[in-house]
């Protein structure tokens, strides 16, 4: 089980509101390559992982993704906080406003609600780990897109941190895939 720590994984302090950037970043909250999907994917897949290294990796990265979800939610909140409705209308993010106000809701940037259809969890650990590698690369690409449209250093800094974490996760999943393959091969032949 989990114990909550009253801090974010990396510091976030955004003082300049930017509702359009908030809606862009929102896809990493509840979109197809977002942190909620990542967390649910790994925390569900861990139950059928065959080695202790794989169980630990999926458990711990699945947990870290929840901390990333919190970081993204914090960014969306700080970018949207107290922006007047008329300003939201002028910036064309009023459709989101009339549904949710300035709250953080798990959807992608187009308002499509989160769905578990974004993830898979199979008994085959090789299938899962290959999906996880693809997911990390897709998340990294999304952070690259977000960085290419962001200007504020207070926004870019945490986005860069999150992009680097996807790179590290990709690396660890690659190692895990090799460990699982080696274990399965040795069981088959000896």
């Amino acid at each position: 089980m989990w114990l909550y720590d009253k801090k974010t994984q990396y510091p976030i302090k955004i003082t300049k509101p930017d509702p359009r950037m908030a809606i862009a970043i929102l896809t990493q909250y509840g979109g197809p390559n977002g942190e909620l999907a990542a967390s649910l994917r790994y925390l569900s897949q861990r139950f059928s992982m065959p080695t202790k290294e794989a169980k630990a990796t999926l458990n711990d990265i699945g947990t870290e993704e929840l901390a990333h979800l919190e970081m993204i939610g914090t960014m969306v909140h700080q970018l949207m906080d107290k922006v007047p409705p008329k300003e939201l209308e002028r910036l064309h993010v009023d459709t989101n406003f009339v549904i949710h106000g300035r709250a953080v809701y798990p959807s992608d940037s187009n308002g499509v609600p989160f769905t578990a259809a974004y993830i898979e969890s199979m008994e085959d650990p090789i299938a899962n780990l290959n999906e996880d590698l693809a997911a990390e690369q897709k998340a990294r690409a999304t952070y690259e897109y977000l960085l290419s449209i962001a200007d504020d250093p207070d926004v870019k800094d945490p986005l860069r941190f999150l992009r680097e974490r996807e790179v590290v996760h990709y690396q660890r999943f690659g190692e895990t895939l090799r460990i699982v393959q080696e274990t399965m091969n040795s069981k088959k032949y000896f």
């Binding site: 089980m1 861990r46 139950f47 202790k52 290294e53 169980k55 630990a56 458990n59």
Partner: peptide, 9 residues
């Protein structure tokens, strides 16, 4: 030792 079995599940 963190990774050692058994995990809670």
């Amino acid at each position: 030792q963190w990774i050692n079995d058994p995990w809670p599940w």
